[in-house]
Design a binder for these strands. Structure first.
Length: 426
RNA sequence: GGAGAGAUGGCCGAGUGGUCGAAGGCGCCUGACUCGAAAUCAGGUUUGCGGGUAACCGCAACGGGGGUUCGAAUCCCUCUCUCUCCGCCA
């Protein structure tokens, strides 16, 4: 949530920054006006309440002295009526303002390239050598079906479109990747492993910014108050909701493996074949609670931690900074990591690493108390995929394929697969 | 699913209608003592919002929401969570 004080004190700056995210200025002007209105009514109510409190105390005193209080009671009754009237108005304004603030996106960092869509994303680096094949490289779904490790047809029978059944080395490879990623992040990068719930309440989704605006992207459990998580970001960021952390504990870094569930509403016709876009997929997620003075440094580190997984797997990738028009609602700055897919001859997103600054922390009330200076401050939250497991399988199959349709297993994964070196058709 | 108990400040824990934003303890901060530290002694130490250059003033908050009352941590309703017992269950 954007800080209303920023709108109050630097309205024009906020309008300018949010125009980069295609937010019309009228929305900010509306929030500004609601805030002014709310404040004047609140001030009025509070003055009346102060008078009422004073009179109430007087009654206590009069009663103790066994004196008559009817005159004071009469005045209180009059004040109470006024309070009721104005308070309703103040509460209406407050609710309206709050609802409006909940749908205003985060302001982009000044460094983020300005543009209306992904064509304005800025490439930051490229890593690895794009493999050259002396044959036509196959797509992962073709390879997977030939190898007998993916079964899209039966998945459709069971659950419909956008699901897959992984079998044999397909299933084992997912499991190996999950363990490999978690091992690297916990042992080499200092993340604390957590295994959170996959069903969450609405409040958790408000905290991260998925609600109220993006309900259509989520699966809601019928009849219950639960939602299936779209990413581990939701439960893990909410670990510290309504908490005051110790400054010396920052940054706190978590790593979580979870399935992710997405309705993919509005993506009809996109990536219909294969494992790229599924209703259910696995992800190892990195989440940090950082000191606000150091969060951009932590974003660089977190992104490097994700990149290192790709490097261990020797998968060619590039890093791009998402433009203001392509980044998400809650983010102030996002790096996407895109892995090379030979069958499509392009880079596809495999990780998204963001600094949300205090946007989520303000929604979820995650704060810390500075050692000196007293006043509690909001932490900065960050997260990134480290990595999306299904898409990593896709990238491995496509980049490590051989002419005969077999696939070489990346060296770092072999110890997780009983030493297997190659996936072969059987 | 049934029966009961509970939720108070960073932590522990008192408080059953007004003088309670809240005793006491722990922790933390400042000062004294000390070469220094520990111990001891004295003082201080909640948060959010609004107003004010500031000192400061006001409003709100004792799990969440609602109610009774001139006045609620305290009484009533409701929700959430925790614990105990019974049932069921991987």
């Amino acid at each position: 949530m954007i800080d209303i004080q920023r709108i109050r004190n630097n309205k024009d700056e906020v309008i300018e920054l949010l125009s980069r995210k295609n937010v019309p200025s009228e929305i900010i002007e509306k929030a500004f006006a609601l805030d002014e209105d709310w404040r004047s009514k609140t001030t009025e109510v509070e003055q009346l309440k102060a008078r009422k409190n004073a009179l109430s105390k007087e009654i206590g005193k009069l009663k103790r002295e066994n004196k008559d209080a009817s005159e004071v009671l009469a005045e209180i009754e009059k004040i109470s009526h006024s309070i009721e009237e104005i308070e309703v108005l103040a509460q209406e304004k407050e609710a309206e303002l709050k609802n409006l603030l909940l749908i205003i996106p985060n302001t982009p960092n000044i460094d983020v390239p300005v543009g209306k869509d992904e064509t304005y994303n800025r490439e930051e680096k490229k890593w690895g050598e794009i493999p050259s094949f002396d044959f036509e490289p196959k797509s992962h779904d073709e390879l997977g079906e030939q190898l007998g490790i993916f079964d899209f047809q039966r998945a459709a029978k069971i659950s419909g479109a956008r699901f897959v059944v992984c079998k044999k080395m397909g299933a084992a490879l997912e499991r190996a990747l999950i363990n490999f990623m978690i091992d690297v992040h916990t042992k080499e990068n200092g993340y604390i492993e957590v295994l959170p719930p996959y069903l969450v309440k609405a409040a958790a989704l408000y905290g991260t910014g998925n609600l109220p605006k993006f309900e259509a992207d989520l699966f809601k459990v019928d009849g219950g108050e639960f939602y299936l998580i779209p990413t581990a970001e939701v439960p893990v960021t909410n670990l510290h909701r309504d908490e005051i952390l110790s400054e010396e504990d920052l940054p706190i870094s978590y790593c979580a493996f979870t399935p992710c569930f997405r309705s993919e509403a509005g993506s009809y016709g996109k990536d219909t074949k294969g494992m790229i876009r599924q209703h259910q997929f696995h992800k190892v997620e990195l989440v940090k609670f950082a000191h606000p003075d150091n969060s951009y440094n932590e974003l660089e580190k977190l992104t490097r931690d994700a990149e290192r997984i790709l490097e261990y797997l020797n998968l060619p990738y590039r890093r791009v900074t998402l433009s203001t028009g392509d980044m998400s609602f809650s983010s102030a700055k996002t790096y996407d990591l895109e892995v090379w897919l030979p069958s499509q001859s392009l880079y596809r997103e495999i990780s998204s690493c963001s600094n949300f600054e205090d946007f989520q922390a303000r929604r979820a009330q995650i704060r810390f108390k500075p050692k000196v200076g007293g006043k509690t401050r909001f932490v900065h939250t960050l997260n990134g995929s480290g990595l999306a497991v299904g898409r990593t399988v896709v990238a491995i199959l496509e980049n490590y394929q051989r002419k005969d349709g077999s696939v070489v297993i990346p060296e770092v994964l072999r110890k997780y697969l009983n030493g297997a070196e190659i996936i072969e058709p059987n």
